[in-house]
Design a protein around this nucleic acid. Structure first.
Lengths: 204, 204, 204, 204
DNA sequence: AATGAATGAGAATTCATTCAT
DNA sequence: TATGAATGAATTCTCATTCAT
């Protein structure tokens, strides 16, 4: 009984969070009202404030939850000695792209509403965002150290370019500038990796 | 006299525009007030509305002015038959990065406040943004057609990855995640181009 | 068993009432939440509404309980033929001042939150408040009738001045404008009575 | 022209202030809305915030303006060597009581909404309130020093009792517990002074 | 009796935009 | 052109009260 009631509560909280993601994605964080979230979740206005400190707080939670998963994937890829650098980067890119495939709205919110507005948001999540860059840079750097990638390119810049490429792909999908069927997404990851690892230059 | 007064007007208009850029960059478009712009420009509140239709209108103008320059550079690079693909992409990347070097706030506004919030802004500038992607994709595609770049990678995706890489570099600088001295910027462009054209893979 | 449980209930009710007094005194009636009371009492939110009709109702009860005691003291002083007017007024003043000494928070709530906001509260307790004034006025009036106090001063005004003096003393203590050690309080009552009965004028 | 427009502005500001006094007096500070003030003043909602920082800020200004006048009167009475202590206290009491006679709502707001809720208001005006007490105490103390008042009563307590008496008179009028025609007010001041200076005790 | 989730009416404040001068 | 007062819609957050368990 207690379990039931506790899970019922958790369900409402989750419903609000999910509704917020949909509403943020649809209208943008700045152009939606808290009442939109409540309506979308089918709960009373005040309940939003029962579970969350503020509108900002909801966005924070959406971001942190998802970004945390990504950081784990990056860390795991880095740690897995059985993978080649290409496989590691593929793993990271695939995770992000498939996250988008499964829940495009969540990724839209994470990328468009949070990471892209990080300064407006009082730089609240910079440390976390930076961790992402740094994790990818580490993958590159240790591959360079092992001679698996060319050593003359700054791993920092390489990491940023790689992550920027993924983010821009998502942006293009979000803004409907490119088809994003499952196969399109797989192809895009393939092309991204091929570009980053192999280069666009004519192959000898 | 008329000319004097007209140029004096033009100066005020420009002062407001410049002030808006600083304020947008500092506080973010959504977190600043029109009065902040007027204060920063040292003009009366109402004068902002004499020269501009609305707050959005000011942002539009900042964006269109700068984005137009970039589109020109992309177009020129594309048209210049004397340049190799690498040189063309270098030209584009350098223009954007040096724009940031000269006027970091303008670029910050263009990227953080406009392109990254394109959906929030009712997709007002999508066509223009897309032109940028498309222009880069055209450079890649024609180089592929001429056998100067490998043909098996989608020029669309390549263009997006390239542009995403640049944008993420700017973001990193904007957010102070990387040093951005002139030499740092040149090195970053070099590394970006080398990554995109040559690839990170071990060079034979 | 029933008795036990009933007295346990009574204890909780009392705990809530006492907690409310502390919270009202600390933050002011208008600036505290019902949840603050529950927290302070260490009971569940809803229980407050099990025992009390409303937040206002709690304040009413605090006030009526204490004000009733004061009215009794005034009545008893009035009725006790063995007391001189000075003794009667001393009794009243001492009761109020010692009430403050024992439970400063209760008196603070009664005075600051109720009597001083009587009009804001829809004049809910005016009749009771007036009874206090009237009771004191009666003491003065009957002493005048008996020739124990000079007859040329309106007993109404005298009563108001007397009560106002006490209340202002309490206010000064509440706001920490004066020391309020037990001896300070006794001295203050003494000075008050001496002022009211003997007058500040040079004594012949 | 400038003067006209400037005084027109000042008039609106004043109109808001006056309206606020009426509304605060009528409904109590905590039970009125900012829109009530705007409506009463016949101005747009937003204009209230053009001229005042906040609802609290309006109350502050009402209080400080009037309280400042009273402090001046107390100071002047204290400084005027030609007045007897009785005359000095009469001057103070008369000023306060006549202030009430002329603008009962202002005095109601000052006393009921500010001084009586000083702790709720974050003790914002304590220093000023205390100055009032202190000023009266100074009048008493210097008269004692000159042998014009008996020396054995704490001037501090005497000042508090005197001020408390006045305040309670005003409270009684505000709450309609006593008639407050001009003659009633003069009589009340007379009785107050006679009580405080001469004492209620039978006169020899 | 006891719990705390759920409700929703308020209310303060902000700020883009308009307008009279 | 230039000014800044005036407007009022929009929106977040609060919190007393109710209710299901």
């Amino acid at each position: 009984m207690a379990a039931r009631s506790s899970s019922a509560s958790a369900e409402k909280r989750r419903a609000i969070l999910d509704a917020a993601v949909r509403v943020f994605a649809e209208r943008g964080f700045n152009h939606c009202r808290v009442s939109d979230i409540a309506d979308e979740a089918g709960v009373a206005y005040g309940l939003v404030y029962h579970y969350f400190k503020s509108k900002d707080g909801i966005l924070d939670e959406v971001f942190l939850e998802r970004w945390g998963l990504m950081l784990e994937v990056i860390q795991n890829a880095h740690d897995d000695a059985s993978l080649s650098p290409r496989e590691k980067l593929t793993k990271v890119a695939t995770f992000i792209v498939e996250s988008y495939g499964r829940q495009p709205e969540v990724m839209q919110v994470v990328i468009v509403e949070v990471t892209r507005q990080a300064n407006t948001f009082g730089r609240r999540h910079w440390a976390k965002i930076q961790e992402g860059h740094a994790g990818i840079a580490r993958i590159v750097a240790s591959a360079q150290a092992r001679g698996e990638l060319r050593p003359d390119i700054s791993p920092h810049v390489a990491g940023i370019v790689f992550y920027g490429g993924i983010e821009q792909l998502l942006t293009a999908w979000i803004f409907d500038l490119m088809p994003s069927e499952p196969q399109d997404r797989r192809d895009a990851v393939e092309a991204l990796i091929e570009t980053i690892i192999g280069g666009l230059g004519p192959q000898s």
